[in-house]
């Protein structure tokens, strides 16, 4: 479990790093996928296999595809990219000023240091760190770390796993004591015997979200209230 946790945590952190540094939203989405996969491994290491599988199905499967759909629908450039001056080409111009100087200055000195093209391309794809956001998030991390460090000493170790729970799913038959901690049967018994009302309320919430999403994203239709009126000349976009 220890090895699985360390591996998954490293994968998760690497994916997070990709997510917050890449400029291209599709690469960032890939980083998010990697981070979710790593988190699924962390859940497995914490004896929650059902949560791990749901994580992969819901987050890495459904949500990532939805994000990808909307990324393809929309323009991925932000205001920063649009306002970029035509002459500026990012770090390539900073490191290799001669290269972007036009054909007239094509002559290179022999012993001049040139940053390899791969390095400048990698630098161009990375978003520059924002200092204020960095300060805020790092101070939050410091607060969290202080709180974790103040936890009592019992938190230095997970207790032993509880023995499997007694009780069968459907009938009091032979298979007593098969519900191990974190197993699908134990989790489903918890849902339907412990919190049935919360389960029903969440299903209602998802239904409402489905209706709301359809209503928000559809085009303007005559006679249907709540739909957007964006004019016909813009609808072709």
């Amino acid at each position: 479990m220890e090895v699985l946790f360390i591996l998954s945590a490293l994968i998760s952190l690497a994916g997070t790093l990709i997510l917050i540094t890449q400029k291209n939203p599709v690469y960032a989405l890939l980083g998010l996928l990697i981070a979710f996969g790593g988190s699924a491994g962390v859940f497995k290491a914490l004896d929650a296999p059902f949560i791990a599988v749901s994580q992969i199905i819901i987050y890495a499967g459904a949500l990532a595809v939805m994000f990808l759909f909307v990324l393809m629908f929309t323009d991925t450039r932000t205001q920063d990219d649009r306002l970029k001056l035509p002459g500026a080409v990012g770090s390539r111009a900073v490191f290799n000023p001669k290269e972007s100087g036009g054909p007239a200055k094509a002559k290179k000195k022999k012993n001049e240091f040139q940053v390899p093209a791969a390095v400048t391309a990698a630098l161009d794809s990375i978003q520059l760190p924002k200092p204020m956001a960095m300060v805020l998030s790092l101070s939050l991390l410091v607060c969290f770390t202080a709180a974790i460090a103040k936890l009592p000493a019992e938190f230095n170790d997970f207790g032993p796993l509880p023995a499997s729970y007694s009780g069968a799913m459907f009938a009091p038959s032979s298979e007593d004591g098969v519900l191990a901690f974190g197993s699908t049967a134990a989790v489903s018994k918890t849902i339907f015997e412990g919190f049935p009302l919360a389960f029903e309320v969440v299903s209602l919430l998802i239904f409402a979200a489905l209706l709301g999403a359809v209503l928000l994203a559809r085009r303007h239709l005559a006679g249907i209230p709540g739909t957007q009126d964006v004019g016909k000349e813009r609808d072709h976009a």
């Binding site: 997070t16 790093l17 997510l19 998030s137 991390l141 969290f144 770390t145 938190f155 230095n156 170790d157």
Partner: peptide, 14 residues
């Protein structure tokens, strides 16, 4: 548990 909670804190801050 503290290590796992620290991982969660790092991911949250990121």
């Amino acid at each position: 548990p503290k290590v796992v909670l620290f991982l969660a804190a790092v991911l949250f801050s990121a």
